[in-house]
Amino acid sequence: MGFATAVLIRPRAALVLGRVSNLPTVVSNALAGLALAGTTLAPAPLLDAILALTLFYVGGMYLNDAFDAAVDARGRPGRPIPRGDAARGAVFVAGFALVALGVALAAHSGPVGAASGTALAVAILLYDVLHKKTALAPVIMGVCRFLAYAMAAGMAGAPPGTALLLGAAGLFCHVVGLTCAARQEAYDRLERAWPLAMLAVPLLGTLAASLQAGGGTVAGLALWIVLLAATAVALFRLFRRAPGDVPRAVALLIAAIALYDAILVAVGGGPGWAVALATLCFPATLALQRLVPGT
């Protein structure tokens, strides 16, 4: 059954389309954004930020597959729409609805949240529409994660400060590096390695922040060692280029976003529960990726 004849989004397809295994990194993004903004990590603003970012993430991923359906039918026929497990029209509707709900929730928090939420929605749509057509796609994806921090802070009424902008810049570089690798995942090979140098920026930035931090120094340094190890393993796989190495490396780098977030929460003086929660998002992502593909 082709993607043009499917009439429903099957339950398994709904999970695959949304790349829900990566949602723990959305939780850690919300924690880091609030911590860097210097706001109190109270349950209400944190849950609001997590919900809004989840709506944006899943909605954006749905739209990604909907816009790519024709291309996937040729190159990735196992994706839910080409194989007939989801109707392209239904995926479009669901994706736009989820993004719209994310904007509405962000706007409900106030003008700063409305502005950052709108900016994030625009960036997501730009990526989904253009990512197959421009070499700047990794940059647009990096902007999406950059704005995730800004929106979490904005929903708490905090405009972006220096700490948040620097932290978001490091996340931007990490995402640009992994997205450059992910663009070549369908071919299971890495043709251009130089963009991976971007991965050094968050490593150097978090090391410097951990060494300068007060109470978060020990936790920050311990998490930095884990982030360094995860990045090294991913790079080894990318350069080895054995069958399956590229997608596994990309999935690991996605999960490592949570480690980067956890370091920032630790060095930003976040409470122990917040550091622990952000840290647990890394193994949670890896575990969920075994059930639902993260890419």
Rank of each mutant, 00 (worst) to 15 (best):
P293F: 13
M198F: 15
P11N: 07
A4K: 08
A69Q: 05
F239V: 15
D245C: 14
F236H: 15
V218N: 05
A121F: 09
P159W: 13
G33Q: 03
I50P: 12
R83C: 12
A153Y: 05
K132G: 04
P138M: 01
A6F: 13
P293A: 07
R145M: 08
L178E: 01
F96G: 04
L101M: 12
T40Q: 14
C173F: 10
A150F: 10
F282I: 05
A266L: 08
G244F: 07
G167S: 06
T179Y: 07
L130D: 07
A114E: 01
A249S: 00
A168G: 06
S116I: 00
D72W: 13
I140F: 10
F3D: 09
G154Q: 03
L17R: 05
I81C: 09
I257T: 12
L51T: 03
V201T: 06
L63G: 07
V175Q: 08
L235V: 15
M198S: 10
Y260P: 08
F92I: 03
A69R: 04
L190Y: 04
T118S: 12
L23D: 02
F96N: 00
L46G: 07
F3E: 10
T206K: 00
A153Q: 08
V265K: 08
Y260V: 14
G170Q: 03
L288Y: 09
R83F: 13
Q212L: 15
A209V: 04
